[in-house]
Nucleic acid binder design. Structure first.
Length: 358
DNA sequence: TCCCAGGACCCCC
DNA sequence: GGGGGTCATGGG
C-alpha cells in the first residue's frame, strides 16, 4: 500500500504547516508550488567597540524582566538580539564593551551607527531623575538597590507580541515561545559561531492563524497573538520597512489594539508596551507582583485599574521607573528562583535560564 | 496533587 | 464598574 503524504499542498517542514491553507497535517490541495525558502541566513563578522555607561548597570537593565531576548552566557557576556542585530555586551566599570553583527542599525527613529544605537537603545544618556519622599522607605531602598537600571527602547512590534504572550505565564516560558517564533519565522544571523534569529516581521507572523499556535501549545494566547499580528499588518498597509513607521504611528496602532477585543492587549499589556517600547515612562503595568507589593507595602487593594491609577498619580512623570524599582525589589525579596531575583542573579555567575539563540 | 505565572475577556449583579 | 469564572501550559 502506498504511503499517503500528509500534505498534498505546499507543506513546509520547518513551519509544520501548509502555507496555503494552514492545515497542520494535510491540506489535500495539489496546485501548490514548492515550499518557500525560509532559510535566509546571513553571516556577520563582529564589529567591536565600547560606549560610556556612566551610572549605568547593564545587568539590571538587560535582566530585569523587561526584555525577553537577552541572556547572560556562561562566559559572562550578555548576548541578545535587538532591531535585527545580534550583540554581545559586557560592562567594565563605566564602559560597555560591545560586539555587534552590523555597523548600523535601523529603527523607527532612523538608521544609526551601532555605538549611537546602543546609547539610544539602553538610554545611556538618560538617567531617571527622581525625588523620593524620605517617608517612603520601600521606594528609597528599592531605588538605591537598583542604581543604573534603565528602560530599554524595545522594537514596538516585538514588544506587542512578547507581552501578549506573557499573559499569565512565567517569563522563562515566554522567552522560549518568543524564541520559537524567531526560530521558525525569523531570518538567521550567524554571529560568532552561533545562529541568532531575528524577530519575525508582522506580515510573516500574521500569515499563521490561531489554530497553528494552538498546535504548538501556545494555549489561550494563540488567537490573541494571531489577531494582533494581523491588525498590525493591516495598519502598516504592506509597509515592510520598520523605519517607515514613526513613534507616533506606533502609538496609534497600539492604542487601536487596546480598543479592539480579542487582541490580548488589555490594561496591563497596553501599559507594558507603552512603557517598554513607546517612550511612555509614566506608565505603570500592574501584574500579580505589583498587586502584592502594593498591598503589602502600601495597603492598596482593589482592581488592577485602581492600583494602576494610584501608582501613576503618585509617581507622576517617573511613575514607570518608581514602579519598576519596587517590582524588581519586591521580587528580589519574594521570588523563589534566582533567575527572578535579578539583584542576586547579577552578583552571581549563574547563566540565564534561556538564551536568545536557543 | 496543588498552586502559580508580568491577564484578558465575558457574564452577572 | 467590579467581582467572579474561565481560558491552557509548564514549572516548582
Amino acid at each position: 500500500m502506498d504511503e499517503v503524504p500528509r500534505c498534498f499542498g505546499r507543506y513546509n517542514e520547518t513551519l509544520e504547516v501548509c502555507e496555503v491553507c494552514y492545515a497542520l497535517e494535510g491540506c489535500h490541495r495539489q496546485r501548490c508550488g514548492p515550499p518557500r525558502e525560509v532559510e535566509e541566513v546571513v553571516s556577520a563578522d563582529p564589529v567591536e567597540g565600547e560606549v560610556e555607561g556612566e551610572r549605568f548597570h547593564l545587568g539590571y537593565t538587560l535582566g530585569s524582566g523587561q526584555l525577553f531576548r537577552w541572556g547572560r552566557d556562561e562566559d559572562g557576556w550578555w548576548k541578545g538580539i535587538a532591531y535585527g542585530t545580534a550583540f554581545h555586551l559586557r560592562q567594565d566599570g563605566e564602559r560597555v564593551r560591545f560586539r555587534a553583527s552590523a555597523r548600523t542599525v535601523g529603527t523607527y527613529a532612523g538608521r544609526m551607527q551601532v555605538g549611537t544605537f546602543l546609547r539610544w537603545y539602553l538610554r545611556l544618556d538618560e538617567p531617571p531623575i527622581l525625588r523620593v519622599p524620605r517617608a517612603d522607605r520601600h521606594l528609597r531602598r528599592a531605588r538605591d538597590r537598583l542604581k543604573g537600571f534603565r528602560f530599554a527602547r524595545q522594537a514596538p512590534f516585538e514588544c506587542v507580541i512578547s507581552y501578549v504572550l506573557s499573559v499569565q505565564e512565567h517569563m522563562s516560558l515566554t522567552k522560549r515561545r518568543i524564541n520559537f517564533l524567531a526560530r521558525i519565522l525569523g531570518r538567521g544571523i550567524d554571529f560568532m559561531g552561533v545562529r541568532y534569529r531575528q524577530f519575525p516581521e508582522p506580515d510573516v507572523l500574521a500569515g499563521l492563524n490561531g489554530r497553528y499556535f494552538r498546535h504548538h501549545k501556545f494555549g489561550w494566547r494563540s488567537e490573541p497573538m494571531a489577531n494582533s499580528a494581523r491588525f498590525v499588518t493591516e495598519q502598516l498597509e504592506g509597509s515592510t520597512d520598520v523605519m517607515a513607521v514613526d513613534l507616533e504611528s506606533w502609538r496609534a496602532i497600539v492604542d487601536g489594539l487596546g480598543e479592539l477585543a480579542g487582541t490580548g492587549v488589555g490594561l496591563k499589556v497596553h501599559k507594558c508596551i507603552a512603557l517598554f517600547s513607546l517612550d511612555r515612562l509614566d506608565a505603570v503595568p500592574v501584574d500579580t507582583w505589583v498587586k502584592k507589593m502594593a498591598r503589602d507595602w502600601y495597603g492598596i487593594q482593589g482592581s488592577d485599574a485602581k492600583v494602576c491609577a494610584w501608582a501613576e498619580a503618585r509617581g507622576g512623570k517617573w511613575a514607570g521607573y518608581k514602579n519598576e524599582y519596587l517590582f524588581v525589589y519586591y521580587r528580589e525579596l519574594n521570588a523563589p528562583s534566582i533567575q527572578d531575583r535579578i539583584i542576586s542573579f547579577c552578583v552571581s555567575d549563574v547563566p540565564s535560564d534561556v538564551l536568545p539563540f536557543e
